[in-house]
Design a protein around this nucleic acid. Sequence first.
RNA 1: GCGCCUGUAGCUCAGUUGGAUAGAGCAACUGCCUUCUAAGCAGUGGGUCAGGGGUUCGAAUCCCUUCAGGCGCACCA
Length: 559
Amino acid sequence: MTEIVRKILAEALGAMGIPVPERIEVEVPRDEALGDLSTPIAMSLSKQLRKPPKNIAQEIIANIRERGDFEKIEVAGPGFINFTLKKDSLYRSLSGFLREGDGLLSRKDIGKGRKILLEFVSANPTGPLHLGHGRGAALGAALANLLSAAGFSVIKEYYINDAGRQVGLLGESVFAKYQELLGKSYPFPEDGYRGAYVEDIAKKIALDETDRYKGLEFTPPQSDFFREYSCGQMLALIKADLEAFGVTFDTWQSEKELYERKPDEPESEVEKTIRYLREKGYTKTEEGATWFKATEFGDEKDRVIIRSGGAYTYFASDIAYHKKKVDVGYDELINIWGADHHGYIPRVKAALEALGYEKERLKVLLVQLVSLLRGGKPVQMSKRAGEFITLKDVMEEVGADTTKFMFLTRKADSHLDFDLEVAKAASAENPVYYVQYAYARINSILRHAAEKGFIEPQAGTGAVDVDLSPLSEPEEQRLIKKILLYPAVFEAAVYAREPHRITFYLQELAGIFHPYYNKHRIVAEDNRLTLARLALSRAARIVLRDGLHVLGVAAPERM
RNA sequence: GCGCCUGUAGCUCAGUUGGAUAGAGCAACUGCCUUCUAAGCAGUGGGUCAGGGGUUCGAAUCCCUUCAGGCGCACCA
């Protein structure tokens, strides 16, 4: 719908000899009495042309040739150009929309098949997922759906931090528990993990491997076994939780793998990367440690990649990881990180640049932390004592769809209070049900219509021929316009990488459909009218379904 | 101390990249089920857009500053 306006405006500007801006602003006026669409372009051009906005607006209007779709084009307020579409034009557009049918919303050309690697969650496999991970998961999954639908080729990846101190600590914690179970005492590591899951894993080992490791020290080979076994168990749990949350990944990249030499390779990915940086002169040795000269690429400090003790830092493998991503040939890398990692962005971008890639290739979306409340009071969580509420707990208490919807009605970088009582108490009144209910309701209507002998128009066949002109009620006009606006909202969401725009749109759409349903009977006495209303309902259904699918929220046939 | 994020209705949050008279849900109150689903609808009340300056035709949005909250500033991950 907005495209029509953009097009005629571009033509008019061209005819006036004015350079056409890259992106002509088109918006929906606040007050529907003002028109269907509006542009402030005359005001934007005012300074450049040194003419009053209203005069420019008049001139633009005078230069619009194709005005067949419009009832009215007029100047209003300080210089807006307002467009009111002809009903015929709306019906034509809606017919076109229906003709394309489910899943054929034409938008594949936005992404043009460009390849995106989307990395998200990537929680350490040292404990269960918490709510903050859930937020990242919901956003990542929705973003992947959004971008895929827009014609990007998206790979969802989970980076597993299975190397280094943290997993070692997990292994040792399990080891200590295991010894305790077998009646041997082994000092529990100071910063060890104390959650119940540690004991669960220890029990499983005691069961599967009996007392084979009883009384031993935490040294190889048993330390390797405990570390890898525990890590594997945690990962399985994480994977299961994510699946229950409706979030899946295409690839799981192991950090440890980046340190391993493949049979036919003389060096590991990490070694290769560091050698590359060293040869380029981007490293230095100071106080026994090897540093990456991040300051040469805009970071505020140089960063250690090999400690004086010889161990690699996390950053070393992270550079190798990002090098690998970019070498594979992705056009764009998107990382979704917790906001507590924001200080990390400049150094990763610096590394990318040192490796010869533009830092713009990487886009980091920061997800703000989630404060968990119950009845307005913060839920105390102590990781040390192993007391915390996990994503799984929240899913069981509140529900996966509601939890996801909560996350997706906020932009990523807003701080979020997640009150369990509110989420649960509002459950019946929750916006997610409002949207789902609209969808279920339409399905119910269509079922009812089928029973009454009205044949639901099928895409590519009957839909084209349905006469939509009986749709003259204001509620119907409003609904049609909202539906036709979906592609523009979708595109804006893609452009901004903000799935929450879809969430709000769906609430608005449902907020138009419900009153319409309440005021007018879809399946009525009049045959022509009923067919037209069914077609309109079906169009709303298509959009609701598509939007819910993007969000990763269920679209129930009935409720 | 420095950096990043946030501050919008009682609560939780949007605000179409600077546009018209700032919106939604929840909570509160009043009505609506014999008719396609009442997880719905109709209506009422609710604002110093944290404060102050600036930029311009125009600011919740951009800049400066103050205040408040969160998060970072390792040879941790």
